[in-house]
Simulated assay, not measured.
Amino acid sequence: MTTYTARATRDNDRFWLVHVAELGQYTQARNVAEIETMARDLIATLRHIEPDSIDLEIDIQLPGSAREHLARVASLREQEAEARKAAAAEARAAATELKRAGLSLRDIGKLLGVSFQRAGQLTSDG
């Protein structure tokens, strides 16, 4: 199966110009959500195949500064996920220590800023 690449660039700040290099042909999309559909439709029409049978890679060309910001967003989101995971582990550890110290689930929940039901979940073995 041939893999097609659709490269989308902004055209006059109004449309996305979509170039399918393997066909040497262009199509337009009004927005990012339409890029894949329009590329598949172009390929399917010219190759006489079903749009769902096409292996397609989308390459959206963005200004360098925007790409840098998006890369930073992805990095920060990864860090956020890691921080949330670490915070959850610390909350579990704190809840377990507080339970061992004899505190009630209501007190543990209050200290951790969660419900007593969540405190119970944090201190359970399962």
Rank of each mutant, 00 (worst) to 15 (best):
A6Y: 01
S75Y: 13
G120S: 10
A86K: 10
D41S: 06
A93Q: 15
Q28W: 02
L17R: 14
L111I: 10
A33S: 13
R77V: 05
L98Y: 10
L103Y: 12
R14I: 01
M1N: 10
A8R: 01
S124R: 15
E34T: 00
R10C: 08
D41K: 02
L62E: 07
A33N: 06
F15M: 07
P63T: 07
D41C: 00
R72K: 11
A21M: 10
Q117H: 03
V32S: 08
T96R: 13
N12I: 00
V32C: 00
I54K: 04
A119G: 13
T96G: 12
E80D: 09
A8L: 01
A91Y: 06
T9E: 13
G113T: 06
A33W: 02
L105T: 02
T45D: 14
A94L: 13
E68L: 11
A21F: 11
L17M: 11
R92M: 07
G113S: 07
R72N: 08
E90D: 14
E22C: 14
I58C: 03
V18N: 02
E36T: 03
V18I: 07
D41E: 11
R84C: 03
G126S: 08
W16M: 00
G102T: 03
R30D: 01
A95P: 11
I54G: 10
R77C: 04
D52N: 14
